[in-house]
Amino acid sequence: MLTALVSAKSDGVTTSATAMALASSRPVLLAELDLSGGTLRHGLLRHAPSGEGRVLDGRIGLHRLPRADWARGESESLAPAVDENLWPLDGSDSRVVLPGLTSPAQAPSLAHTWPELINVMQLSDQQHGFDVLADCGRLVVDRGRLHAELNPVQVLQQADVVLLVVRTTEASVALAHPAVQVLRQELTAGDDAALGLLVIEDGTYPAQEVADALGVALRAVLPFEPREADYVTAGGHPPRGFIRSKLMRAARSYGDQVREHAHRRRLHIRMGAAQAMSPQVASVAQRVAAQRGAGVRSHG
């Protein structure tokens, strides 16, 4: 499963993605793809030793991949370079992070690297059983379209699910309205199942009311817990009972639900593609549709 998280403003994308990664019972690859720059290396990851004597510095992260992509042969994969730039999210071997850019100026260099990086992320899911969570940060819109260099547009387009992170405040909901329109125009191609909401309960409106107002399916609801959220982003010593906190329980439960939705959507797409590739199936479908239409007319 490849799930991308974005927001119209700085509304808790990194906190939400990291909480879902920490709470997951499955192997997870968290990719910090916010092109304004990554923040985990300055927070939570400072307290996550690699166990190999390595130090998380500027020589590790997303910004190292364009050069590796340029240097690799045509028959070689980018996977080894990605693996070299992963960092443990916690003390386990099953949760890893691709730390983000160290400067927004590095974003344009990724233009030709996205297809191969997406392929590596998809293979991590399909062949190695990793859930992939992509922290895509704040959307940058230019004249009604996603800015091609300042958003990981291709990741959003290839994701099984795109979660727009919204807080239950009037300001957050107001800013989310145009973001929904842009995402629907550029990402889903009429398939609303790709787009969903992750709502953070940090305001006066009920989560379902926010979803109804935006016209987007509610996929996840996370409680606003300042202590736990601060640890997820800044690191340090976890609050007492962190693993059993409301935030982590919700992140685990809704993460499972998002995964199930992504699985169903992927199967639906595959079935549609298989039908489109088979003239026999397409012919049968056309005949059935014609018969149904004739039946409706005869009863009219």
Results as ranks from 00 to 15, higher is better:
residue 11 D to H: 11
residue 12 G to Q: 10
residue 14 T to L: 11
residue 16 S to K: 01
residue 17 A to G: 01
residue 19 A to M: 03
residue 20 M to S: 03
residue 28 V to M: 02
residue 29 L to P: 05
residue 32 E to W: 07
residue 34 D to I: 11
residue 35 L to E: 03
residue 37 G to M: 14
residue 38 G to C: 12
residue 40 L to A: 13
residue 44 L to C: 04
residue 48 A to G: 14
residue 49 P to G: 13
residue 55 V to P: 12
residue 55 V to L: 15
residue 57 D to P: 04
residue 59 R to M: 04
residue 60 I to T: 00
residue 62 L to Y: 06
residue 73 G to Q: 02
residue 75 S to F: 03
residue 81 A to F: 00
residue 87 W to P: 04
residue 95 R to I: 01
residue 98 L to C: 07
residue 103 S to A: 10
residue 113 T to S: 14
residue 115 P to R: 15
residue 122 Q to G: 08
residue 128 H to N: 05
residue 129 G to A: 02
residue 131 D to C: 06
residue 132 V to S: 02
residue 137 G to D: 00
residue 138 R to I: 01
residue 140 V to T: 00
residue 141 V to W: 07
residue 143 R to F: 11
residue 145 R to P: 00
residue 147 H to I: 03
residue 149 E to F: 02
residue 155 V to P: 05
residue 155 V to A: 09
residue 157 Q to P: 15
residue 157 Q to M: 10
residue 158 Q to C: 15
residue 164 L to K: 00
residue 164 L to A: 03
residue 171 A to M: 08
residue 174 A to F: 08
residue 181 Q to M: 08
residue 181 Q to H: 10
residue 183 L to C: 13
residue 191 D to E: 14
residue 195 L to Q: 06
residue 197 L to S: 00
residue 214 L to Y: 03
residue 215 G to I: 11
residue 216 V to R: 01
residue 222 L to Q: 08
residue 225 E to P: 04
residue 225 E to M: 12
residue 225 E to A: 06
residue 227 R to L: 08
residue 227 R to D: 13
residue 229 A to C: 05
residue 238 P to I: 07
residue 239 P to Y: 08
residue 246 K to N: 15
residue 252 R to C: 11
residue 253 S to Q: 12
residue 262 A to M: 13
residue 262 A to F: 14
residue 265 R to L: 10
residue 266 R to Y: 07
residue 270 R to M: 12
residue 280 Q to V: 15
residue 282 A to T: 07
residue 284 V to F: 05
residue 289 A to E: 09
residue 290 A to I: 14
residue 291 Q to R: 10
residue 297 R to K: 04
residue 299 H to W: 11
